[in-house]
Design a protein around this nucleic acid. Sequence first.
DNA 1: CTAAGTGCAAATAATTTGCACCGCG
DNA 2: CGCGGTGCAAATTATTTGCACTTAG
Lengths: 150, 150
Amino acid sequence: MVKDNLFTSYLKKDGLKITNQRINILKCIKLFKNHFNAEDVYEYLKKNLKEVSRASIYRMLPLLKKDGIIKEVGRDENDKIIYECVENVPHHDHIVCIKCGKIIEFKNEKIEKLQNDICMQYKFKLLEHNMELKGICKECLKREKKNDIN
Amino acid sequence: MVKDNLFTSYLKKDGLKITNQRINILKCIKLFKNHFNAEDVYEYLKKNLKEVSRASIYRMLPLLKKDGIIKEVGRDENDKIIYECVENVPHHDHIVCIKCGKIIEFKNEKIEKLQNDICMQYKFKLLEHNMELKGICKECLKREKKNDIN
DNA sequence: CTAAGTGCAAATAATTTGCACCGCG
DNA sequence: CGCGGTGCAAATTATTTGCACTTAG
């Protein structure tokens, strides 16, 4: 019924049956350039007249996560699980300014290496990591100094 | 009614009224050497014949978090928010097993140093960081292998 | 006195699950 | 065919909230 393609191969790899719902969920996820949650997937597919139930989405996302196709990033302000599609967003870490919210993305090979070493030491198979440095950016530091005079 | 002490000072600092419930919650939290959740606090206090309602705990924990006395570490397998008391546990990072939820704490000076370097490079004043390595622990790897044979 | 804090029980809301039906392989 | 997948609606469950009552300051 469905021809072979990139999406069916994801499913086959995992021994999952190929259904239109699953293909649609996968296609949808590939479209999100940033973070998304279960409801985003549901709404997108509804809007585009694709048949899916929330249940299928909630059953599918953990499978995709286990498969490493998506990853859990955290929770949003409504406690919804935030995911991101691994392939859409190349790996990086964040520095966040707690004053102005500015986010800088960086990647540091030495740290990645050390993370691997640590996991080896604890006999963990490292799958992913999240690192977030929080601080105050140059501009906000400057502004703070100025205000100190008052 | 309640004499001044370490616990009342926490509350005063934040302009919170000093109530027995709050003192009890604070005392309780200070006892947990490791992670805890709202229910842990509730059960501990119930067991020790202290009067508190879940509502007060659920209202208190976010305040303590905003105050930097505790911090949110993640979620457990039942989606409960995991906290830890900052002062009880000197700074460290986490390795989490995505299969069984086991959490290992570690500290690595080299990484801390590199994090500082990175922030210097971007002209950030580093205040704190969160690093979470996610993977599969030794035991779960073993169990997975065993299951593969079947 | 009075605004903030409490406890209860009811509400909320994300996610999960039971079950009857459907359709892939 | 048979079992895995689906949709619905009902269940679950952590957390939140409304409200009347209490209490710290």
